[in-house]
């Protein structure tokens, strides 16, 4: 299958998402406000139980607001990608568009993965757009570079999640279920990723689990990126290495499993 076909499919997905945003502006506004709503809740809860300095010290961050904004954006993008990739099959089945998607020369797995990447691109774009005014206000113009690095980390970090979502999408279609089977995993992923508290305070078993969750490295990288007072590069490179390994592992296993799932879908009907 040619790269041109895949690029065309990715373009189609981006086109439909942008058109969808145009038709659902209130949802776009909600997405833009999401990181602020999250940090308000976190700050409110945090201030009720302790002070900001303690949190700053425990997390090892220079600026709480900057970090929480980046963390909220990270979580929103992760949730968006997982939800989009995992639900894409169901969404098309509800709309009645699934057979027409399956009629593309590319496989359904390839389509679902590309749809996940499109979701990663658009969600990252809206989240970076959302937090950029405050980040620039707090960190000055040099923080534009921080945003760029953060966006890159988010996109790389979403690649393993995309295949995880694709596998879930196939499972949902094979099982002929109406819901996203991945939804119960999401709180677990967030819990072990260390996004709102350090991984080190988790029980040993969860700490080990956190090491095989891609989001942990995305959070780590995001933390280092916004932590302008220290030297983040070494840590960032380490996080990128870990993410790269996960991209290979998740995609390899996920691809084989998803292709088996697609074969089942075509055997049993969708």
């Amino acid at each position: 299958m040619s790269l041109r076909l895949y690029m065309s499919m990715l373009q189609a997905e981006l086109y439909s998402r942008i058109a969808w945003y145009r038709r659902n502006r209130s949802l776009l506004v909600a997405e833009l406000l999401w990181p602020y709503a999250t940090i308000m809740v976190l700050l409110g809860l945090g201030l009720g139980f302790g002070d900001i300095e303690r949190y700053q010290e425990t997390m090892g961050i220079a600026n709480v607001i900057l970090y929480l904004l980046a963390a909220s954006a990270t979580i929103t993008v992760s949730l968006g990608v997982l939800d989009n990739a995992a639900s894409i099959g169901l969404w098309h089945r509800w709309l009645g568009t699934l057979p027409y998607i399956m009629l593309s020369p590319a496989s359904l797995v390839a389509y679902s993965t590309l749809a996940g990447i499109a979701a990663a691109l658009t969600t990252t774009a809206t989240q970076i757009l959302s937090i950029s005014p405050v980040v620039v206000a707090l960190g000055g113009l040099q923080s534009l570079g921080v945003l760029l690095v953060l966006a890159s980390i988010l996109l790389i970090g979403m690649l393993p999640l995309t295949m995880l979502g694709t596998f879930t999408a196939m499972t949902a279609l094979v099982a002929k279920q109406e819901g996203n089977l991945l939804s119960f995993i999401v709180p677990l992923i967030i819990m072990v990723s260390g996004v709102f508290y350090p991984v080190e305070i988790l029980p040993r078993s969860l700490e080990v689990l956190s090491r095989v969750v891609p989001l942990t490295y995305v959070v780590e990288a995001a933390k280092l990126t916004v932590n302008l007072s220290s030297e983040p590069w070494r840590g960032l490179i380490m996080a990128t290495y870990s993410l790269s390994a996960m991209i290979v592992a998740y995609n390899l296993v996920g691809y084989v499993a998803s292709r088996l799932g697609e074969k089942k879908v075509r055997e049993r009907g969708y």
């Binding site: 041109r4 076909l5 065309s8 499919m9 086109y15 439909s16 058109a19 593309s104 020369p105 590319a106």
Partner: peptide, 12 residues
């Protein structure tokens, strides 16, 4: 229609 044309691999 434009969406499906691109899904079927047609250049924009």
């Amino acid at each position: 229609l434009l969406y499906f044309a691109m899904i079927y691999g047609m250049p924009r």
